[in-house]
């Protein structure tokens, strides 16, 4: 018995000392790591929108920034991802107020395309081709007659993914260029994004909007510990895209578990899903209750929408 206590206390002391040491190192390196991250981010943003007089304001972490010159919005910078050959290609794209690409930047970090082939998307000549193009021109020459991008020899998949990431991102975020955003609720930015146009017609206050070709509705579902808000854009009976309220927007599910559903990856599982097949969408492990809440919210909102329009 005495021996056991001795053994356990040695392990205990080693672990305590280790914990102290690590918290000390962590405390001292964290600010340096964060400073580097924000410095790199700012450098990258400036590379995508090279202008020394502008400043950037984050709209969505790591995804969207508005570019201000003084008080006026002169453009946006966004980051949009598309699966390449063997990794996610996420260009950082600067767009001027006319909707023209200023510059794009594909950082090497996190990119694992084939070295010497797909990795060439990080080369200057490839990225420079995008400067000055408008939405319709951002295609590979072989894929669309208006396309102005030369693909990389023997790396068509990577070049096509990079091009599509820029094009789809521009499509998704161009509405932010027009400025005047309705202020207020958490879903306002996403409402514009999901409806695809700036001016939406509000049918039921704070619940249902009609955009050009689709409806967007807001619905809540009972999650594990709170109400989870979901914004859904729908065309006939097909869900086009959804946005799930994230913790910054007031969602209160278990951090690290329930909150995981508020990710682009999970949200995209609902893209173009027939409303009757919502239950088939795979849940996230560790967040089953919250996933159920999202599905319930989508379905109940849809029923309400149908009921209301009859």
């Amino acid at each position: 018995m005495k021996n056991k206590i001795r053994e356990v206390s040695v392990l205990f002391i080693v672990a305590i000392v280790s914990a102290f040491l690590l918290s000390f190192v962590y405390k001292n390196t964290k600010p340096v790591i964060e400073e580097y991250a924000s410095k790199t981010l700012n450098e990258n943003l400036l590379k995508a929108f090279p202008d020394s007089q502008v400043h950037f304001e984050t709209v969505k972490n790591d995804t969207l920034w508005k570019v201000y010159k003084g008080e006026a919005i002169v453009g946006i910078v966004f980051r949009n991802g598309r699966r390449g050959y063997s990794s996610l290609i996420r260009p950082i794209v600067g767009v001027d107020s006319a909707g023209r690409v200023v510059k794009i930047l594909i950082p090497k970090e996190g990119l694992a395309e084939t070295p010497g082939l797909g990795m060439k998307v990080t080369e200057g000549w490839f990225q420079e081709q995008f400067s000055g193009l408008t939405l319709g021109e951002i295609w590979l020459r072989g894929d669309n007659e208006n396309g102005k991008i030369d693909g990389i020899t023997a790396a068509t998949i990577s070049s096509r993914a990079a091009t599509a990431a820029v094009r789809e991102g521009l499509e998704k975020f161009k509405c932010y260029l027009q400025g005047g955003v309705i202020e207020g609720e958490w879903y306002v930015d996403d409402l514009i994004q999901l409806s695809g146009v700036e001016d939406v017609e509000e049918l039921i206050e704070d619940r249902l909007w009609k955009a050009k070709d689709r409806f967007v509705y807001l619905s809540y579902g009972e999650g594990f510990i709170s109400q989870v808000g979901v914004l859904v854009s729908i065309w006939k009976d097909t869900v086009l895209a959804i946005h799930i309220q994230c913790p910054e927007e007031g969602m209160e599910e278990t951090p690290g578990y329930g909150t995981m559903v508020a990710s682009i990856e999970f949200e995209s599982r609902f893209d173009n899903v027939y409303i009757g097949d919502i239950d088939e969408v795979d849940a996230l492990s560790g967040a089953t209750m919250t996933c159920e809440a999202v599905k319930k919210a989508i379905k109940s909102g849809y029923e309400e929408l149908m009921g209301g329009s009859e």
Binding site: V10, L11, L21, V25, V32
Partner: peptide, 26 residues
């Protein structure tokens, strides 16, 4: 103690590895 040596080794090793990891990141 002999029968607790592996967990203790692992704790010690992982402490230094984490120090290296943070330091390199910074």
């Amino acid at each position: 103690p002999k029968n607790l040596r592996i967990p203790i080794f692992i704790v010690i090793i992982s402490t230094f590895v984490t120090i290296v990891d943070y330091t390199m990141q910074a």
